[in-house]
Design a protein around this nucleic acid. Structure first.
Length: 497
RNA sequence: GGGCCGUUAGCUCAGUCGGUAGAGCAACAGACUUUUAAUCUGUGGGUCGUUGGUUCGACUCCAACACGGCUCACCA
């Protein structure tokens, strides 16, 4: 017996053939439900005084997920997009022939339509008493076991439809994801931002430090790159005169997979003229608080991995140095010069590469020692210029960028900065990136001449930010792996390896 | 990429010291008109991830490979 044709599938195919032979179509499309199950439960689920259900005619559709047979009576649990509800089918109500030869030939997993009236069982459960039923779509494969359901993690990811059928909490999670994105989109629109779509295929990959996926366009006979970030296109739109734009869409990075990394992931990036990174901190604080409160019923405290994360503003704003002093127990003087940083690197087992600028070493120390400790929402600001090739140079310190990142639950959630709008400075930064690329850094940026040309036409002073949607959803749904919040996560091929 | 763990019926899982495989659910046949994982009686269902090796004999021991999980490294 092959895996694809086990005996249960054969039995179901034979049942389908028998039904069709008896004039019952297996996949008709002429049934229209009139009520959702959730609607019926909310309207009639709670008993009211003097209520009579007998006259309430209903017409519903759903998938059979459970059966309880009693000879001449069957209870079935129906599941539609909104809820589960019980249906009672009686032989004497629908007719002996239909009951014995059609209804009893149905299986768990089949879609059916049911017309009937409402009643309450002895245990007070609201139930549809069927006067008529119809097969809507025959299922040829058996569903996973009714009690344990589908627990195999690999199958849940590879066959997400099955996961969604039998694990209602997975449906709830993805509804929450959708709601989070909707809240962010509405919020941005209310603040006057214009939603735009920029290319997913880039002739020059840019806007982030990452390895891109490469593809080939036949007609143009040229390489194209799946975008690693929309940043440079969105800022071209600021040059073009849109003063507030945002995009919620996918980025693609050709890097390893982990519980926090999927090759394609969703970011919201937004750019606003006449603002800076300090004002963006306040904006993001308000935006995320709005989302968290809406998702958690007004509550700003979220449970995550057994820890309480309190989103109540204002959130701490620390410089990289301050964070290292506080969370890495570093003496202040050690964060100020090369020698001190190298002492810290030795203490924490961080490799201090010779070619690194001081700022790069500082950041490496932060990543290794501090990042994972930033559980409560915390802004870390004033990043080194060396690792911020698109950020505005600080007016006070030419080695610092007007940039911050937001950390929550030990993860980087947002990255934002005052944008570099000096075309000559930007060109110099690109040159440095190209030099790094030539020295073997695969993640370094290309020189984007058209972007420089755009800046040469004048970009107003601007602030911009990117917020990682998948990680935000993980935080707000208490998920352990990014694959749990992506419907179809990337998996290795089973056949060709 | 490294380390550790896992892969047995459609699903969830047992399988002792190496002697050719078990349960529950699901399926099939039957009983049953108020169940909630209904219950009761009976029946069928397996290339034990793949390929090699050791052995008289391998689900079991060994090796390689595939896929997955956790974790470290890199990144967001």
């Amino acid at each position: 017996m092959s895996k694809e044709e086990n005996s249960q599938i054969l039995v179901r195919k034979e049942k389908l053939s028998a039904l069709i032979a008896a004039g019952v179509p297996g996949y008709p499309n002429d049934f229209r439900p009139k009520q959702s199950l959730d609607f019926l439960l909310s309207q009639f689920g709670q008993e009211k005084n003097g209520e009579t259900l007998a006259g309430v005619q209903v017409c519903v559709a759903g998938r059979i997920v459970l059966y309880r047979h009693f000879g001449k009576l069957t209870f079935a649990t129906l599941r539609d997009a909104t809820a589960d509800m019980q249906v009672a089918v009686q032989r004497d109500e629908v007719g002996v022939d239909l009951y014995n030869n059609v209804f009893r030939k149905l299986d768990v997993g089949d879609w059916i339509g049911v017309e009937g009236t409402l009643f309450r069982t002895k245990t007070d459960e609201l139930t549809v008493r069927a006067t008529r039923f119809q097969l809507l779509a025959k299922a040829l494969r058996p569903l996973p076991e009714k009690w344990h359901g589908l627990e195999d993690i690999e199958t849940r990811y590879r066959q997400r439809y099955l996961d969604l059928i039998v694990n209602p909490e997975v449906r709830t999670l993805f509804k929450t994801r959708s709601k989070i994105i909707s809240l962010m989109r509405n919020s941005m629109e209310q603040h006057g931002f214009l939603e735009v779509e920029t290319p997913m295929m880039h002739p020059i990959p840019g806007g982030a430090v990452a390895r891109p996926f490469v593809t080939h366009h036949n007609a143009l006979d040229r390489e194209l790159y799946l975008r690693i970030a929309p940043e440079l296109y969105l800022k071209r739109l600021i040059v073009g005169g849109f003063e507030k734009v945002f995009e919620i869409n996918r980025n693609f990075r050709n890097e390893g997979l982990s519980t926090r990394h999927n090759p394609e992931f969703t970011m919201m990036e937004f750019y606003q003229a006449f603002t800076d990174y300090h004002e963006l901190m306040t904006f993001i604080e308000q935006l995320l608080c709005h989302v968290v409160a809406a998702i958690h019923g007004g509550n700003l405290v979220v449970e995550h991995h057994g820890r309480r994360i309190d989103f109540t503003p204002p959130w701490p704003r620390l410089t990289l140095q301050e964070a290292l002093i506080r969370f890495a127990d570093a003496p202040p003087e050690h964060t100020r010069d090369r020698g001190g940083l190298e002492v810290l690197a030795t203490r924490y087992g961080v490799e201090a590469k010779e070619e690194w600028a001081d700022g790069e070493l500082l950041l490496a120390l932060f990543d290794a020692v501090v990042e994972g400790k930033l559980i409560q929402p915390t802004f870390i600001k004033d990043y080194p210029i060396a690792v911020s090739p698109l950020s505005r140079r600080s007016t006070l310190d030419p080695h610092a960028a007007d940039r911050f990142e937001l950390f929550i639950g030990g993860w980087e959630i947002a990255n934002a900065f005052s944008e570099l709008n000096d075309p000559q400075d930007q060109a110099e930064r690109f040159h440095l990136q190209v030099k790094a690329k030539e020295a073997g850094d695969h993640e370094a940026m290309h020189f984007d001449e058209d972007y420089i040309r755009a800046l040469e036409y004048g970009m107003p002073p601007t602030g911009g930010a990117g917020i990682g949607i998948d990680r935000l959803v993980m935080l707000l749904t208490d998920s352990a792996a990014i694959r749990d919040v992506i419907l179809f996560p990337q998996m290795r091929s089973r056949d060709s390896g």
